[in-house]
Amino acid sequence: MPELIAKSALAGHAPVTRLQTTLAEGSAAPITSVAPYPGRMDRVNAALAPLGLAFPAPNGQTRQGAARLIWTGRDQAFLIGAPAPDGLADHAALTDQTDGWAILTLTGPVAEATLMRPVPLDLRLGAFPPLRTVRAPLNHMQAILTRTAPDAFEIMVFRSMARTAWGELTEALEVLAARAQTA
């Protein structure tokens, strides 16, 4: 059995830059869904402590070094960048999600404006500060959206929809560039 070759969701898509803003494929591994069982949050947090993480509040994340735990929905967060610590599985359902998501990054001065085409959310800095993570639609797709810096976002969509997400964000960026050029 030869080794199987891994392929990322957007392999072959070179970054796109318009108005100093770049759309690129990102990466994050491993991704483990952590879903605490009812009444076991204390023990979940105890198990997470060695990583320096705690279960995040809704729309938030906790991070320590390369490891982060981002809130992804009701009773659920994704542990990214570190394997699940021992003992966590006793108190939370753990599910490998590493391959389930395509990751896109959008960085630059018009990142916010670009996303406010397909995302029906108030992404103004005051309302959506860095390290905020939300579940939200990207047009007709479900997405996990994180502001990683004032001018940078990470967008996770179902892996099979990566090309649609890429196409829609590219179009939004192109349109903004054309608007800027003719303003």
Partner: peptide, 11 residues
């Protein structure tokens, strides 16, 4: 209650 105020289209 978890996500905050959202447009009807999300529901």
């Amino acid at each position: 209650p978890l996500c905050g105020e959202r447009d009807r289209r999300e529901f």
